[in-house]
């Protein structure tokens, strides 16, 4: 019996197939247990390239036989929590975009209280959605296997992202690292 309100964390490199895998997990879940599929879109259509990426992801989802409800929220995703119930399957793709939005949209100075707020918005936002929905699948990027000490912004960004990822893995029922399309189960048992 599937546990109610579970969290799955999925990460991988650029073009590793992490989004496709995450969608498959969501669709499998919908097929086996029912539930409405929701895509939580975090991307801001800032330029033409981003628009094209968003359209491609939309077409990929529209191509399947399942109906996805797209919900757009670029910051403070916790606000969405109250709209979801234990019938809903939520796919959030991805945490790094969300972090970029939180950090850069407001053009605020990166002081301690702001960074704390940003981190909280993301972690408690996801946990809030998770506690209400049937299943929450969160996708992120592997970007921390590089030097981070050369630039202060990179250092702070890396520190926050690492902290968020560690928290999500801790809370997750399952955690996957996707390498070249192949998901490696890092935590939990296969559902």
């Amino acid at each position: 019996m599937e546990k109610v309100s579970s969290l799955i964390f999925i990460t991988g490199g650029v073009r590793s197939g992490k989004s496709s895998f995450a969608e498959r997990v969501a669709v499998d879940m919908a097929e086996s247990c029912g539930g409405k599929l929701h895509y939580l879109a975090t991307g801001v259509q800032s330029d033409d390239e981003m628009r094209k990426r968003i359209v491609k992801h939309q077409q990929d989802r529209a191509g399947g036989k399942h109906h996805w409800i797209t919900v757009e929220q670029s910051v403070q995703i916790g606000k969405l929590g109250k709209y979801f119930t234990d019938r809903d399957i939520i796919l959030l793709d991805c945490v790094t975009t969300l972090l970029n939005n939180e950090l850069f949209i407001s053009e605020r100075e990166w002081d301690k209280s702001f960074l704390k707020k940003v981190t909280e918005n993301i972690i408690t936002g996801i946990m809030d959605i998770k506690s209400r929905a049937k299943k929450t699948i969160v996708v992120s990027n592997e970007v921390l296997n590089v030097p981070v000490d050369g630039n202060k912004l990179v250092f702070i960004y890396g520190k926050i992202l690492g902290h968020i990822h560690q928290q999500l893995v801790k809370e997750a029922d399952q955690a996957y690292l996707v390498e070249a399309g192949i998901p490696i189960l890092m935590k939990g048992v296969k559902g």
């Binding site: 592997e142 921390l144 590089v146 981070v148 890396g158 520190k159 992202l161 690492g162 902290h163 560690q166």
Partner: peptide, 8 residues
């Protein structure tokens, strides 16, 4: 080993 801020 492992990436930066991974909890090593």
């Amino acid at each position: 080993t492992g990436g930066a801020f991974n909890g090593k």
